[in-house]
Design a protein around this nucleic acid. Structure first.
Length: 635
RNA sequence: GCUGAUGUAGCUCAGUAGGUAGAGCACAUCCUUGGUAAGGAUGAGGUCUCGGGUUCGAAUCCCGACAUCAGCUCCA
């Protein structure tokens, strides 16, 4: 029997050889690191026996699937520890996730951090006992009987919901047995380092109508050092939390009086405006025009747009002169009214109309999170009206533009295609055409993308752009949505070559997504040390003592005259103190001025990045900063 | 919205078996005028989130509301 291994190497084996045996035959090191195997595209257990020629890949902790097998084993160890300590606890599910794993339980008491310590202790014992994990399958009725006997109602429910012909596999380690598809490691001893990180509530099967279970989050690594490194990285990420930095750097504030409605402070406004200036510049270049539509519009409009039926629970409403009005949750209906206010020719298409629109959405209180998830935010919206033939070109143009913008900030991102959701309007054909249009554009530019079934907007499918923050969380920012519905509902038209009115197709798109969220991501991305073009204060002049305050003033005036964002530290403090303060504010440049500088008519430059750079001509320094600002470099 | 936790000075946090509060930073005034990450002194600042209840007495105990945090769910 021949097995094809990594690198196309073929090797002979006796039929019945296990994945682990194959790993051993390649090297003891690999055998120790092996977590699972991949056989004909399927991830399998290490104990899986192979009887035919096949391609086999040994998966280690380095591979995503191997990592999942590793952490899933850790989750079984956690469940076993919980059952040993608290036998009347009911088990739900316990999968591996991105940076660790969790297990959902129903406890008969309220779990506290003290309990976690006890559980960790018991887990350590289980690891030390080095139990073997064994796999077995049972017919349906026996499987249900086993789980009933063990008083595991959630497991029974899981089995009952599995297809009739599904193979029901179990894994046991010592006295513990769990319904599980696997794969798993061979023994508990491999899980050398683990840490229970947090307790949270989670609905059974993710449905908010179901019972709330207790979820324990944890992570595990094959080496203690890797765990330590991971925990250190989490600590580091916490320091970059935009809520913390936003407060420390005086960028924005959230007040009890307006939950989810952020206040922008002067320094935060500078960043916001710098983003808007950049946005206007590239959009003007790309042939966009800009409009602004009212924040509140009558109920009739929202009925026409479909928001009244599909988005009502997220909208703020009020009465004006006995008529119902709603604060806009989206800009498109207002934009459509603008389009409709004039007759349009095919010659005007594609028509690209931008709007920095402030929208309000009533998000659930528990969903609010700093600037990342708020109840009012500014969308850098634009609607593009076009003929069907223009669709691919326009979509590609938008993808290109968004890519350009994200690269400006050095962001990593990925794209997802979201398809028709349940609560949606329009015909199947329109959805089909629109979805294929987006898919085609993605294929044409050769982009890699994931598909999110049922995650589209209620009026059309969308391409989402997801940016990664410092904690490795991803946030949806840009979207491109293709829409046949609203043009139809609003009856918008253009006059074609032949003189007949035709219905244009519409794209909704945002690049930043929400300027507020984008700023939140930027704060974490840069750790508060913004590049010069975004820095609220670019330069601070630090006089060595009061004697040089006048010269400092002269320098400050020159910096300001050149359009730099500069300030003067007038406090009667020592230079070390002033430098420390400027450094903690993460200012890009400090200019120290004392006797030497006043004498020579220059400045001593200290930069955030390089420390003391020595004396420099003020004019040359101004030119340097002005260039960084103008070119919007990442420095 | 749900589960759990938290709410004390502008910020970060101590504290009290129930007898109306404290530190550091920041702020103000004064002294110091110092060359690359914290000089010194003095002072001002709090209905201890809000509303009920228990109590001779509540910031502390109980209940409720609100906000925040960790998640779930939902989303830009």
């Amino acid at each position: 029997m021949k097995l094809t291994l990594k690198g196309g190497i073929e090797k002979d084996f006796e039929p019945g050889v296990s994945v682990l045996d194959v790993a051993r035959s390649i090297g003891e090191g690999l055998a120790r690191a092996a977590c699972a195997g991949r056989l004909a595209g399927q991830v399998v257990d290490l104990r899986t026996k192979i009887y035919d020629d096949a391609a086999l890949e040994i998966l280690t902790f380095e591979d995503e699937a191997g990592r999942a097998a590793f952490r899933h084993t850790a989750s079984h160890i956690m469940a076993q520890a919980v059952k040993r300590l608290y036998p009347d606890t009911k088990l739900a599910i316990g999968p591996a996730i991105k940076n660790g794993f969790y297990y959902d339980f129903e406890f008969s008491f309220t779990l506290t951090p003290e309990h976690l310590q006890a559980i960790e202790g018991e887990m350590a014992k289980i690891v030390k006992e080095d139990l073997l994990l064994e796999r077995f399958t049972l017919p349906r009725t026996e499987a249900i009987a086993l789980m009933q006997e063990r008083c595991e109602p959630y497991k029974v429910e899981l089995i009952e919901d599995l297809p009739e012909d599904a193979e029901l596999s179990f894994y046991s380690q010592g006295e513990f047995t769990d319904l599980c598809a696997g794969p798993h490691l061979m023994r508990t001893k491999s899980v050398a380092a683990f840490k229970l990180t947090s307790i949270a509530g989670a609905y059974w099967r993710g449905d908010e109508h179901n019972k709330m279970l207790t979820r324990i989050y944890a992570t595990a690594f094959p080496k203690k050092s890797a765990l330590k490194e991971y925990l250190a990285r989490i600590e580091e990420a916490k320091k970059r939390d935009h809520r913390k930095l936003g407060k420390e750097l005086g960028l924005f504030a959230l007040m009890e009086e307006g939950p989810g409605f952020p206040f922008f402070l002067p320094k935060g406004m500078i960043i916001k405006n710098a983003l808007i200036d950049y946005w206007r510049e590239v959009h003007t270049r790309e042939g966009y025009v800009e409009i602004s539509t009212p924040i509140m519009l009558s109920r009739k409009l929202w009925e026409t747009s479909g928001h009244w039926d599909h988005y009502r629970e997220n909208m703020y409403t009020t009465m004006i002169d006995d008529q119902e009005f709603a604060v806009k949750p989206m800009n498109c209906p207002g934009g459509l009214l603008v389009y409709k206010s004039e007759i349009h020719s095919y010659r005007e298409l594609p028509m690209r109309v931008g709007e920095l629109g402030l929208v309000h959405r009533h998000e659930m209180s528990g969903a609010l999170h700093g600037l990342m998830r708020v109840r009012c935010f500014t969308q850098d919206d634009a609607h593009i009206y076009m003929t069907p033939e223009q669709i691919p070109q326009e979509i590609k143009g938008v993808i290109r533009l968004i890519d350009e913008i994200y690269k400006k900030f050095g962001f990593k991102y990925h794209m997802e295609l979201s398809t028709r959701p349940e609560n949606s309007m329009g015909s199947d054909e329109d959805w089909q055409t629109a979805t294929e249009g987006l898919r085609q554009a993605l294929e044409d530019i050769g982009a890699e993308y994931a598909v999110n079934e049922g995650d589209g907007a209620f009026y059309g499918p969308k391409i989402d752009f997801h940016l990664e923050d410092s904690l490795g969380r991803t946030w949806q920012c840009g979207t491109i949505q293709l829409d046949f519905q609203l043009p139809q509902r609003f009856g918008i038209e253009y006059i074609d070559k032949d003189g007949t009115p035709k219905q244009p197709i519409m794209i909704h798109r945002v690049a930043y997504g929400s300027i507020e969220r984008f700023i939140g991501i930027l704060i974490e991305h840069f750790g508060g040390a913004f590049p010069v073009w975004l820095a609220p204060v670019q330069v601070r002049v630090l006089p060595l003592s009061d004697k040089f305050m006048a010269y400092g003033q002269t320098v400050l005036q020159k910096l300001k005259a050149a359009g730099l964002r500069a300030e003067l530290d007038e406090r009667a403090e020592k230079i070390g103190f002033k430098i420390r303060d400027a450094q903690m504010q993460k200012l890009p440049y400090m200019l120290v001025v004392g006797a030497k500088e006043e004498e020579a008519g220059n400045v001593a430059v200290r930069s955030r990045a390089n420390g003391d750079e020595g004396a420099a001509d003020l004019g040359a320094f101004i030119a340097r900063v002005a260039e960084q600002t103008k070119a919007r470099t990442l420095e």
